[in-house]
Computed example of a mutant assay.
Amino acid sequence: MSELTSIPSAHGFAETVTRVEQQIAARGATVFARFDHAANAREAGLHMPPTTVLVFGAARGGTPVMNASPDLAYELPLRLLVRQHEDQVELLYRSIDAWAAQYGVPAQVIAPLRLVEKVAAAAAAAD
Rank of each mutant, 00 (worst) to 15 (best):
A68H: 12
V116I: 15
H85P: 00
S95T: 14
V82R: 05
N40T: 03
D36Q: 10
A29R: 08
R83K: 14
L78I: 05
V82L: 04
A33Y: 13
V109K: 10
A123M: 09
A58H: 12
H47V: 07
Q102D: 13
V31M: 02
V105G: 00
E86F: 03
V105S: 02
D97R: 14
P50C: 00
L81C: 09
D71E: 15
K118D: 15
R42C: 01
D36P: 11
A44S: 15
V109G: 01
R83D: 04
V119Q: 08
V55K: 02
V109E: 07
A121K: 15
A44N: 11
F32W: 07
L92Q: 15
V109M: 04
A41L: 09
R79V: 04
H85Q: 12
T63P: 05
E117Y: 07
L46Q: 08
A126D: 07
V65Q: 03
A39M: 10
R94A: 06
A44I: 06
G62T: 09
H37A: 12
E86A: 11
L91P: 08
H47C: 00
G61D: 08
P112M: 02
L76M: 14
N67A: 13
L113T: 07
E43V: 01
H47E: 11
A123C: 11
P49M: 05
G45W: 09
L76I: 11
A101N: 09
L91Q: 02
L80S: 07
E75K: 11
P112W: 02
T63M: 05
G57S: 06
R34H: 03
Q102F: 08
G61E: 10
Q102A: 12
A122E: 15
R34M: 01
E117T: 14
L54T: 08
V105Q: 00
E75F: 11
E86V: 10
H47R: 12
V89H: 03
V65L: 10
V53C: 01
D87C: 00
T52E: 14
M48T: 00
E86I: 03
S95G: 10
Q102V: 06
L54Q: 06
W99T: 00
A44Y: 08
A100F: 08
L72G: 00
R114L: 04
A120F: 12
M66H: 07
G45L: 09
N40S: 07
H37Y: 14
A39P: 04
V82N: 01
L81D: 06
L46A: 12
P70R: 10
W99E: 01
T52G: 04
A73G: 15
S95P: 13
K118N: 13
M48E: 05
E90C: 04
V31T: 11
M48S: 01
T30W: 03
